[in-house]
């Protein structure tokens, strides 16, 4: 699929508030210090709206969606 997307976190910007994990626990859990750990792999279609919400709600704009790079 050409439209696959992944979540990425900017580890420098992220200040570990964990809002994203509250919204999207299916793909994001938090480590012991409140920083996100992303589930690898593309974002399932039905979670796309929640992923967008998580991105919008991050207080420091540290999380984003990227189109999957083509791997050969």
């Amino acid at each position: 699929m050409s439209d696959e997307r992944h979540l990425v976190v900017d580890r420098i910007k992220c200040d570990g508030r964990g809002l994203c994990a509250e919204i999207l626990p299916e793909l994001i859990r938090l480590d012991d210090w409140g920083y996100p750990i992303l589930k690898p792999g593309p974002i399932p279609e039905h979670l796309r709206p929640l992923a967008e919400r998580a991105i919008d709600d991050c207080p420091v704009l540290a999380i984003a969606m990227r189109r999957a790079e083509k791997r050969s």
Binding site: R17, D57, P59
Partner: peptide, 18 residues
């Protein structure tokens, strides 16, 4: 309240931002 990061059971923070 968002800046204060108020949260509680049944009152998740994304509710406040939303």
């Amino acid at each position: 309240l968002t800046a204060l990061r108020v949260e509680g059971r049944g009152w998740p923070r994304f509710l406040v931002t939303g």
